[in-house]
Nucleic acid binder design. Sequence first.
DNA 1: GACAAATTTTTACGCCGTAAAGATTGCCAT
DNA 2: ATGGCAATCTTTACGGCGTAAAAATTTGTC
Lengths: 206, 206
Amino acid sequence: MVETRPYHHGDLRSALLTAALEVLEEGGVAALSLRGTAARAGVSHAAPKHHFGNRKGLVTAIATIGYSRFAATMAEECARSAQNPLGQVRAINRGYVKFALQNKAIFRLMFSRDHYDQDNLELAQAACRAFTLLEETSRSVARALGVVEADAWRDIANLIWTTVHGYAHLLIDGRLVNRETGEPEPIPDIGRLLFEGFSGTGRKAG
Amino acid sequence: MVETRPYHHGDLRSALLTAALEVLEEGGVAALSLRGTAARAGVSHAAPKHHFGNRKGLVTAIATIGYSRFAATMAEECARSAQNPLGQVRAINRGYVKFALQNKAIFRLMFSRDHYDQDNLELAQAACRAFTLLEETSRSVARALGVVEADAWRDIANLIWTTVHGYAHLLIDGRLVNRETGEPEPIPDIGRLLFEGFSGTGRKAG
DNA sequence: GACAAATTTTTACGCCGTAAAGATTGCCAT
DNA sequence: ATGGCAATCTTTACGGCGTAAAAATTTGTC
């Protein structure tokens, strides 16, 4: 008897997604093709069309998965860290960078407009969950700093987001490496900067 | 008599580059193809091969142009601004964001590893010129702040670069827009934060 | 069992990157 | 001036990709 798989796969959509995630991490966004993922999943090259419509649909689904995992990574760090504003800011930073480092291709994809459909509902919800974590931490920081302006937390959120995102983005592009040591530069401690100002640098005196 | 252009173009390389820049700004990195730029320049589809080798070579040349203009934009802002550390930090920030906003596609391209050859000599030189501006400003900030550690300027440079890059990247991806007003959020004033701490937010009290 | 809907395959077209060979021109030594 | 070499551009060719339409197969429903 020949082991012949049925005409209908049963769960082709998720099979295509896991195949696509593999392709993505191996070859980057450029390698993420409908035909390639179909081939890896062992189906015909036009099979993905029914589930994702076109390439952008596939990429959108991948980005949605990315945002979910992104939020989960940051939430984990927050849960296991000190439950005070400084601890939470640092946790957000760690989670943000950790996800970017461990999922370079998908992280780049998530922050490349035009690659996917930003108006997609599921995607927008997943992204919102991720950024809500950052917003709430910023609100607690604002309270702890005692600033009185009603939406000062926005400035704090922008500062934190901007810094950690710039760091993550530059880091995974191989920019922030010390030319002498070859080590990556540490992430600016925006939490301490907010709470203590730029008093010490943390470096050993030369 | 028929107006027939010569077999040898004379300056095809630069003609291809200007065509490629047009294609890039119109359709983003994805639209930047060898055949497309060749068609726009009015030559055969294989003509670019001799000048750039392959697609990556073309993208590398484009990125090199980008870094040159990037450095020029920041240098202009520095020249026309207050010649003190705070003024120069703000000038770098303005130039960085201005270039990103006015050259979204090429900015994204410049900061997408894998799209081009980062080991290319001319490109590395152009990029170095750009980032040297940022480094020197950071050194002057370190002196002005009176920090004693020998390489504390690195932390300052990382903070400035990280912040402005994150801001520019998020901004051109349409992230930093206030949901109520629709206006883009202002860039965090990292200069003031360094020199004055997070005392005021700059927002009106609510 | 008949019929409609969902799912997958087959076929087809045009664009793209790349390689190799051919055509045309510029250059340089003689 | 001229023969030949190197540079530059075109033609031809191949496979991969996205997309669309039609055909094939299975599932569900009455």
